[in-house]
């Protein structure tokens, strides 16, 4: 049993590694590419970089096919069951949260994945961003009073995001 737990941790390291390599190969570890995608004002000037759309397309194509197959399995390899979000309601938080997130994303060109991978580049700027990002995360969870907030988590499924 202990070996299985250690294996699960090692496998998750490898999966994070693949994610990070994907970010680097795709060019998304460079905030300048992200900002040049978001800069629609650069379309007439010819400086718009559509690469991010191709990253999303590649990721969604693989995930769409992969999820449909994996979720047909009886259970995940290292867990008793799948923890797939089931909420379908459109509450204020699903708009307010991403709106705040989007402003931060547009200011620096970093979202959480690329920012963490940027730490491995040895970037001081990335470190400053990640430290602030973690503070923002802790603050949001504190305000939402997780995990007891019934608005976010249904009692039947305490791990749902």
């Amino acid at each position: 049993m202990a070996i299985l737990v250690q294996m699960a941790i090692l496998v998750q390291f490898a999966i994070g590694l693949i994610f990070g390599i994907g970010l680097i190969v795709s060019g998304m570890s460079n905030p300048a590419k992200v900002l040049n995608f978001l800069d629609v004002g650069g379309i007439p000037a010819g400086t718009w970089d559509a690469s991010l759309a191709f990253v999303m397309a590649g990721a969604i194509a693989v995930t769409f096919i992969g999820f449909s197959r994996v979720l047909k399995l009886a259970r995940p390899f290292f867990a008793e069951r799948f923890y797939v979000p089931t909420r379908t309601d459109i509450d204020p938080r699903i708009i307010v949260g991403p709106a705040i997130f989007g402003v931060g994303w547009g200011l620096a060109g970093f979202c959480p994945g690329p920012a963490l991978t940027a730490l491995g580049f040895g970037s001081v700027s990335a470190f400053i961003f990640v430290a602030a990002m973690c503070a923002g995360m802790v603050l949001a969870r504190f305000i939402a009073n997780l995990p007891s907030s019934a608005r976010v988590i249904t009692p039947a499924d305490p791990l749902e995001s």
Partner: peptide, 16 residues
Amino acid sequence: LIVAGLLTGFGAVWGS
């Protein structure tokens, strides 16, 4: 970077 990080982290958690 600090403001962007705070907003990104807060908004991502707030919006699940």
